[in-house]
């Protein structure tokens, strides 16, 4: 399945784009997506970030589907 992944802040700097399509096996979970991305972008391994699924931070065992809006979020620094 193809998933749309959004990148923000310092993560968009590492990936050099603000969004891309990522191919994952049907029935994959958040953890599997995270591992794939850390392989693709080695610099993510040294970084603390959260993954939001449909605008909520979810547990890493949540299963993904193509309708999800997935976003990688670096530490927040508002205010």
């Amino acid at each position: 399945m193809e998933l749309k992944v959004l990148y923000f802040g310092m993560i968009a700097e590492i990936t050099n784009c603000q969004e891309e399509m990522i191919f994952l096996e049907q029935g994959s979970n958040v953890d599997q997506l995270e591992n794939l991305l850390k392989d693709k972008y080695r610099k993510l391994q040294d970084l603390s970030f959260k993954i939001a699924i449909d605008k909520e931070i979810k547990s890493n065992i949540v299963l993904l589907n193509t309708k999800n809006e997935i976003a990688l979020l670096p530490p927040f620094s508002g205010g």
């Binding site: 923000f8 310092m10 939001a52 976003a71 979020l73 670096p74 927040f76 620094s77 508002g78």
Partner: peptide, 11 residues
Amino acid sequence: EIKKDVPVFGK
């Protein structure tokens, strides 16, 4: 709450 939970990023 704003500082903790809102996804805003400062460069």
